[in-house]
């Protein structure tokens, strides 16, 4: 962040570099496609100006082969770029399994980030270099969009579901983060900084940040405090699905379908419990829509993810 004028954005990840390369290559392509038009127009306008003597014998008014070729050839060039960019894009949908997971809650008009060890921060996101980071994002109200220009990445945060963004930052520094989707009055000040640190600095930062319990532990407290354990706990007499070791496993649903128990599934089961009912269980779970905030839900999700087989029966 410097001076009043800059012409190229900073870059904090290898992926950002690949995007820049793509953009430069594409700019060359569009220059190649458009330059002939500009040159030819100026040339013709000069050469064939009305009143100027020039060779105007046999003007043509159609040439199918010429027309087909200037439709098709650029299109094939574009298809090459399409494959390249779609490949880059598809990577965003496949976060590595071992990524560091940070929860993001957006609301009018602030960002809240929750680290797995329980540290939380507002409008500032600290991440380590050299490690893939996966953001699981929820919105408390309207659509927001987390935008980190130095990573060349953004993803809308949509109420009612989780969206994911992942990256692997490699250059320590402080960069901007912003909300890119218009979200109301203070949209333009809903931003902050994105701080990339070396793993050692990041570890030190984690230690300095005050925290009492890990995210999963906070979720566990909610799980008991809000009465979830009354039905899902080991001593319960109500027939509710067991949650130990649930995360990432297939769940058979009422009606015959099967679904993988991911973050979204757990969220929906808490807030819209009738949407997907586990086979063999009565659909009696009430909604926690008005009881839990998105932040709370993310904590409970973290808790359920942390449950290994047999954890609750101890």
């Amino acid at each position: 962040m410097s001076g009043p004028l800059s012409l190229w954005p900073e870059q904090a990840s290898g992926y950002g570099g690949e995007i820049d390369l793509f953009v430069i290559a594409f700019t060359v392509l569009i220059a190649a496609l458009s330059a002939p038009v500009f040159v030819v127009i100026v040339l013709f306008a000069a050469k064939y100006r009305r009143g100027r003597p020039a060779d105007r014998e046999h003007p043509q008014d159609r040439n199918v082969w010429l027309e087909v070729s200037w439709s098709i050839i650029p299109f094939f060039a574009l298809i090459g770029f399409f494959v390249w960019s779609t490949d880059l894009f598809a990577r965003l949908y496949h976060p590595p399994k071992d990524a560091l997971e940070i929860d993001v809650v957006a609301r009018q008009w602030m960002w809240k980030f929750q680290h797995p060890e329980g540290q939380s921060e507002i409008n500032e996101l600290h991440v380590p270099t050299g490690e893939p980071v996966k953001l699981v994002m929820a919105s408390q109200d309207v659509i927001h969009s987390l935008y980190i220009p130095a990573l060349r990445l953004k993803q809308d945060v949509v109420p009612g579901r989780y969206t994911v963004l992942w990256f692997n930052a490699d250059k320590p520094g402080t960069y901007r983060l912003a909300c890119a989707e218009f979200c109301g009055t203070d949209h333009s000040v809903m931003g902050g900084s994105f701080v990339v640190q070396t793993p050692a600095e990041y570890a030190r930062w984690l230690q300095q940040s005050t925290v009492d319990r890990s995210l999963a532990a906070q979720g566990g407290a909610l799980f008991r405090g809000r009465g979830c354990s009354g039905c899902h706990g080991p001593a319960s007499t109500v027939k509710a699905p067991p949650l130990e070791g649930l995360f990432g496993k297939p769940v058979a649903l009422e009606g015959g379908a099967t679904i993988i128990a991911d973050e979204q599934y757990i969220r929906d089961s808490i807030l819209l419990p009738q949407k997907q009912v586990a086979a063999g269980y009565p659909a009696i779970m009430p909604t926690f829509e008005n009881v839990l905030s998105e932040e709370d839900v993310l904590k409970i999700v973290a808790y359920i993810k942390s449950l290994g087989p047999g954890d609750l029966t101890q």
Binding site: F22, S85, T86, L153, K154, A180, E181
Partner: peptide, 10 residues
């Protein structure tokens, strides 16, 4: 182009 749009969208 998908990958570019992710950066410059909005």
């Amino acid at each position: 182009m998908l990958a570019v749009d992710v950066h410059v969208h909005d």
